[in-house]
Design a protein around this nucleic acid. Structure first.
Lengths: 242, 242
DNA sequence: CTGACGCTTCGATCGTCATCGAAGCATCCG
DNA sequence: CGGATGCTTCGATGACGATCGAAGCGTCAG
């Protein structure tokens, strides 16, 4: 009653199925128009408009006018992380919409999480980066090591530009399919765009799935070799699954 | 519409103010009766009963009969983590119920997060444990190092008993007041109970706040010295706040 | 047994909100 | 200019659900 932040407000925003569908769609990272969102939510344009204004008032999404279209996106990384977090919780509890989790195994393999790489490949990438001591950190706060900075720069990533943004550079995001962390933050975003720019991977249309090309697979495997978990790590990690 | 877990279900459960209040109260860790929960939520016993059965059907809480009372608790650690996560998100957005965040600064200093220590002291403890290489890990998966195991055992913690539980031993939980991670999991729980058992700290009645005693303060400071962040870590950590 | 307590279930009421038709406003196109 | 497209606002409808009174059921005390 008295203490603490107001959860109910956010809960009620997400609690409506139509809004939840729109938010899930926006977690794909692409800016979508009101008409598109109405379509994916299965409602008319008017109701969608009503929902969108509520979501915007709640600070969960932002709109950007462009010509006669209005493009909607998630307000920022935090919203994406929160939603992925909720999806992870829901998935673990078996609250899936159509019985069998994400029916598309491609989603589990590699997908967009708002603006960065998630799924098996996302988790594998962070594992590898940690094993090679490019990234360290505990909890959701991660840091780039000095050697990591070099490595990212040689990869063609403009670190100064990223740090100039008033956003976290590295961040851990809980993966709902793998139930482990992958790399978010502006660096995570930069890496994904790098893959897309180099033609190593492509976005599936109308889906969060990401398809790696043949050369993309090999390049990815070369850059981020499978991390061999040390005996220490494995020791207690196995007690995690129930 | 098609893909992904069902967020809306959980959202709607949390979306009702009465239910949100009860859940927040239960995040205090104590088992509460229906009457108590009705009180904190400001509703009658009948409506509370209705809400509680919904929360139980949704898997968020569990009840335990004892005499003519029914004690309710959060279903497991995951629920607590999820709720703290949402509170963190809400707090960061300024969605506080009564204007000025948690009016009680004691809450920010040290409080119960379902079953472990949170707030300034909780964050400081994990920082210290990481700095002394008792705990390592990335994301929300944390591990105890071999030297860490020794240290916990000498502290009087029965590690074998903890690992026998089918629960994660270490886990990172995002602190809503500090916006950094603190230690959750069965080890986090064991440490808090240790503090309480030794008389170093006491729970405030009817609050999540924890008050450290004089000797408790000194013992805590001795066990978990302020971690001096290395230059590397600090480097990018400062870009986190907006 | 009787009475008190704790809680659930039932039933009725009421408010809120999601939904959509219709109209209004802006933008682009020719 | 007209017409088409994209979206918002208004207004009415309808449904779901939160709320509480009253009754029912188990438990404990004496």
């Amino acid at each position: 009653m008295k203490e603490g932040p107001d959860i109910a407000l956010i809960g009620s925003l997400i609690g409506d199925p139509a809004r939840a569908n729109m938010l899930t769609a926006l977690t794909g990272g692409k800016a979508l128009t009101a008409t598109e969102l109405a379509g994916t939510a299965g409602i008319t344009l008017q109701t969608a408009s009503s929902h969108l204004s509520k979501l915007e008032a709640g600070g969960l999404i932002t709109q950007r006018k462009q010509g006669r279209h209005r493009y909607f996106t998630l307000a920022d990384d935090d919203v994406g992380l929160m939603i992925e977090g909720l999806m992870g919780f829901a998935a673990y509890r078996g609250f899936t919409r159509h019985r069998t989790g994400p029916k598309d195994p491609a989603l589990r393999k590699a997908r967009v999480c708002y603006n960065h790489l998630a799924g098996d490949y996302g988790v594998r990438m962070l594992d590898s980066l940690v094993a090679e001591e490019v990234i360290t950190g505990v909890g959701d706060k991660l840091h780039l090591t000095p050697s990591g900075e070099d490595r990212m720069t040689t990869l063609g990533i403009d670190l100064p530009a990223l740090t100039r943004l008033r956003r976290p550079l590295c961040r851990a995001c809980l993966d709902w399919s793998e139930r482990r962390s992958h790399l978010a933050g502006s660096l995570g975003q930069a890496l994904l765009t790098l893959f897309l720019d180099k033609g190593w991977a492509k976005r599936e249309p109308d889906s969060r799935a990401i398809r790696f090309t043949g050369t993309g697979e090999t390049e990815f495997a070369k850059l981020f070799p499978l991390a061999v978990p040390s005996a220490v790590k494995r020791h207690h990690e196995d007690t995690v699954e129930a």
